[in-house]
Design a protein around this nucleic acid. Structure first.
Lengths: 199, 199
DNA sequence: CAAAACCGACTAACGGTCGGTTATTATGAT
DNA sequence: ATCATAATAACCGACCGTTAGTCGGTTTTG
């Protein structure tokens, strides 16, 4: 690996940690270069701007998440479990709980919004393929698959990525998901085991 | 009206226009006070911070939107039309098309996210009441009304508040809405006249 | 020796502060 | 009612610390 790439990766990881723990807005370039032990000029040799760094950090996060999703899709488990597994994995977004919380604080709106939007674009095609398999197996019954998956992904994201949802939210989500995909009522009740509400 | 309140309102309106047209981040306090013809100190006499100003601007926008929603709810029209009318009105968010576009540009993520979240909280109770009436009239059939309304509001917001949705998105949304509320299939097809997709 | 990587002093713009000034309103004696 | 005076509300603008970003020069690498 070339030296430049190595440094870039180092900065990416340092920035990732700082962005997550204190927010993008509250992390200064000075702090990042202090953490890396380099000078201002060096930073701007590798990145055009702080915003470009943010985009790069987000892309890195998305790569990791998509990898995780691919793992689940390749596993020998039933179709519905695959679908929900990916939804739940992409709900987690990061490995640590404290990090997840940080991602929802006001100062992290930008990061959260950007990751959310981008990850949807990546994951919808993957889940659409899974849904197609489900239809072939007779588990689901619907057309307009990508649009329906889009709806399910949006709901999972908006309903569950913050804390503050109830068990009723989960039940209704399951019901709507089943009806959206044309799955038999109750067939996806197992989702409840993946997500835990506040009450 | 007291002089202080008048000035505050003036600042609110100036800031509103600037935030919308160039984004919150790209609007400096210096520009706002130049627009109002006042000094820095005066601004900070009326507002504690730029963030507080943003919150005030957003609250002002929400008041206007909720007023609009109340108008629709008070009109002598069928229940489903009320429901959709409110969804569509809160989709518009502002009177001018150019302003709507601005609200979705990257620099306005913060404003958009904050307005979206707050307006949901305000509108869900209103629409839940409408849905209850619909059930009494035998048009809908479901329980967990607020949770189901929440889902519909989230979908309407996330699917349609940006450009870039298709007529298939609309058709699927109608289908999911009907099934979510337990309405007869096709009974809400009129929604298509409210929203126009890209294709 | 050329290109890649690095340095750090510097700048411009920003949000916010502060001590002082002017306008407005309330008060009380005549 | 009128007017002086006190009190408060509104306003001013120079100033500050922090920030993202620049640039000309230096060292390291291949």
């Amino acid at each position: 690996m070339k030296k430049g790439e190595k440094r870039k990766l180092e900065l990416l990881n340092i920035a990732y940690r700082m962005f997550i723990s204190k927010g993008y807005e509250n992390t200064s370039v000075d702090e990042i270069i202090a953490g890396a032990g380099i000078a201002k000029g060096t930073f701007y040799y590798h990145f055009e701007s702080k915003k470009e760094l943010l985009e790069a950090v987000i892309d890195m996060m998305l790569d990791r998440e998509e990898e995780e999703a691919q793992k689940i899709l390749g596993a020998p488990i039933p179709i519905p479990q695959k679908l929900v597994g990916v939804l739940a994995s992409f709900r987690l977004e990061t490995d640590e709980e404290s990090i997840r919380d940080a991602l929802h604080e006001p100062e992290n709106i930008i990061m959260h919004e950007k990751t959310g939007r981008k990850i949807r674009e990546r994951i919808i095609p993957l889940l659409s393929e899974v849904a197609r398999q489900g239809i072939n197996e007779g588990l689901f019954s619907c057309d307009d698959i990508p649009e329906r998956i889009k709806i399910i992904v949006i709901l999972a994201n908006e309903l569950f990525d913050r804390n503050g949802f109830s068990s009723t939210d989960i039940r209704v989500f399951i019901d709507v998901t089943e009806k959206t995909l044309g799955a038999p009522a109750g067939s996806m009740g197992f989702i409840e085991d993946f997500i835990k509400g506040d009450d």
